[in-house]
Computed example of a mutant assay.
Amino acid sequence: MSHSINTALTSFGMSGQVFHAPFLLNNPNFTITKILERTKTNSATKVPNSIIVRTYQEILEDPKIDLVVVNTPNYLHFEMAKQALQYGKHVVLEKPFTNTVEEGIELIDLAKQKGLVLSVYHNRRFDNGHKTIIEILNKKLLGNLKIFESSFDRFRPEIGPKKWKEEENPGAGILYDLGSHLIDEALVLFGQPNSIYADLQIQRKNGEVIDYFDIKLYYDSYVAELKSGMLMKELGPKYVLHGDKGSYIKYGNDPQEEQLMNGIFPGSKNYGIEEKSNWGILNNESGRGAYPTVQGTYQHFYENIYQTIVNGKELLIKPEEALDVILLIEKAIQSSNEKRVIALDK
């Protein structure tokens, strides 16, 4: 493939506008050729050289399209990704990968059968906090890790307008939405746990889907706790790490999402760079002070997709890894329903 990768987006809501289009537009190796907008024309001004289509079939039947980005509501992920693969397209799926392990296995097998690239947009692997924690752990600045906590706090007491997120659809609720990010992060950092315990709740008035979770992943010598909720008026720390020689605590989210929403894209001055006032605190044998946050790099996801499709490089986010996330989500649901720790096979 000598030309740029002709790419189609299957929606142009926040996901398309903030997390996909900016990186595709700013990478010369991609061309957004078609965007599916069933009734609106939001992409007309932001991606003027792309063609707006009203049906998915117009994307599937276009032989010039190489890559399909399935960034639609969660309950549509499996069928749309399956169709794209059947039509010979490479596929990037928004997280969560699928709603069940069985669906994920079917997509992986189909992609292998067709010789196509299948990946999942777990962009939080390129968050500044995640990259900083990798650096701290690699440098053993905390000694032997004992406690890891990662949180996604929000204050949204009212039920939101997006019905597919707030009603009982497959993949609805923050366990699949934000939980997939936090679980993926833990798996990248620590691998498969020995066991899992989860407390899943519906806390908001008139809520229909899970809007709070507290998940504990048990390893040989430490515990990873993953938490999120919609009733956190006072936001807690994003990360808390304790080891036998030190601690690291960090507040605040990666600035990339806010920057992208404000039109600050990769290549812009200070993109992905956090203000020093937001750096986390490291307290260890060398003293206590602010620890520099590593720059966030969401753009690396699509750079890798290009290198994998064109040059056969190793895929950074493999579908098998995304499948492990769905497995742990299913085990978390089982644990909460049965109110017990669930042992995991490795």
Rank of each mutant, 00 (worst) to 15 (best):
L25A: 12
L25W: 09
L25D: 09
L25G: 00
L25I: 05
L25V: 06
L25Q: 15
L25C: 01
N26K: 08
N26I: 02
N26R: 12
N27M: 07
P28A: 09
N29W: 00
N29P: 02
N29H: 03
F30V: 07
F30W: 03
F30L: 04
F30M: 07
F30P: 03
T31N: 15
I32F: 10
I32A: 07
I32M: 02
I32R: 06
I32Y: 01
I32Q: 10
T33C: 09
T33M: 10
T33L: 13
K34W: 01
K34M: 03
K34F: 08
K34P: 01
K34R: 13
I35M: 10
I35Q: 02
I35H: 06
I35S: 05
L36N: 03
L36G: 00
L36P: 07
L36C: 11
E37H: 09
E37D: 04
E37V: 04
E37A: 03
E37F: 05
E37P: 10
E37Q: 14
R38V: 13
R38T: 15
R38I: 00
R38C: 09
T39D: 11
T39K: 14
K40F: 11
K40Y: 14
K40S: 15
T41Q: 12
T41G: 09
T41P: 00
T41I: 11
N42K: 13
N42R: 08
S43L: 06
S43Q: 06
S43M: 01
S43N: 05
A44P: 01
A44Q: 12
A44H: 09
T45A: 14
T45Y: 12
T45W: 00
K46N: 05
K46W: 02
K46C: 09
K46I: 11
K46M: 13
K46V: 12
V47C: 12
V47K: 03
V47P: 02
V47Y: 10
P48E: 03
P48D: 06
P48A: 02
P48T: 01
P48G: 06
S50V: 05
S50P: 01
I51W: 09
I51E: 15
I51T: 14
I51F: 08
I51P: 08
I51R: 14
I51N: 14
I51D: 09
I52S: 04
I52L: 05
I52E: 08
I52Y: 11
V53K: 08
V53T: 08
V53N: 02
V53Y: 14
R54C: 00
R54H: 07
R54T: 12
R54A: 06
R54Q: 06
T55L: 01
T55W: 03
T55N: 12
Y56W: 07
Y56S: 01
Y56I: 02
Y56K: 03
Y56E: 11
Y56F: 15
Y56L: 06
Q57Y: 12
Q57K: 14
